[in-house]
Amino acid sequence: MTETPTEPAQPGGQLREPANRVSPRAVSYWRLTAFLGALVEWAVLGVGYAFLPGRPWWVTALLVALVLPSVVHLAVMPTLRYRVHRWEVTPTAVHTRAGWLTIEQRIAPLSRVQTVDSQQGALMRLFRLASLTVTTASAAGPITIACLDADVAHGLVAELTAITSSTTGDAT
């Protein structure tokens, strides 16, 4: 049997957006975590700057150059990310879109899913958020839906577990 290439007929396929957005509270959560991260960075920089003798102009320039990106990150990232993050679960597959600069779309058939977990950190609990991770037998293929409403996440875990436990085989 000689295999000959079969190119897909039309090269113009387009994945549609997954149906659901994550919880709107995710924006505040992302902003808060980004702010806490930036706070540490600013504190270190501020202490370094305060104790530097002389303070030549280029040190000030360097300080601004280091602080500015984190300010932009803080302002832009949460809303951008909220616009990008979407998810959908059908009876046969999970589909997510995530990221803000680099955007990733992941699809896994539910027949190949091995585990379904949910995670909730202390801060996430404050915002009543939870993340859900679906893993397959490939280390390259875990699918995370970040920052869902906690109730939605728990319902989804139950739903996915029911679907995946009904499939047989070892999913490799």
Binding site: L15, L101, T102, I103, E104, Q105, R106, I107, A108, P109, R112, T136, A137, S138, A139, A140, G141, I143, A171, T172
Partner: peptide
């Protein structure tokens, strides 16, 4: 056993994507 379609900022501007087929074998 799954697909990942990744687009960096530069790739999106060029209309390109990196397609990853995930599998349980080899480098996964």
């Amino acid at each position: 056993i799954g697909w990942v379609i990744r687009q960096s900022l530069f790739q999106r501007r060029a209309g390109l994507a990196t397609l990853v087929a995930t599998t349980a074998a080899g480098a996964e």
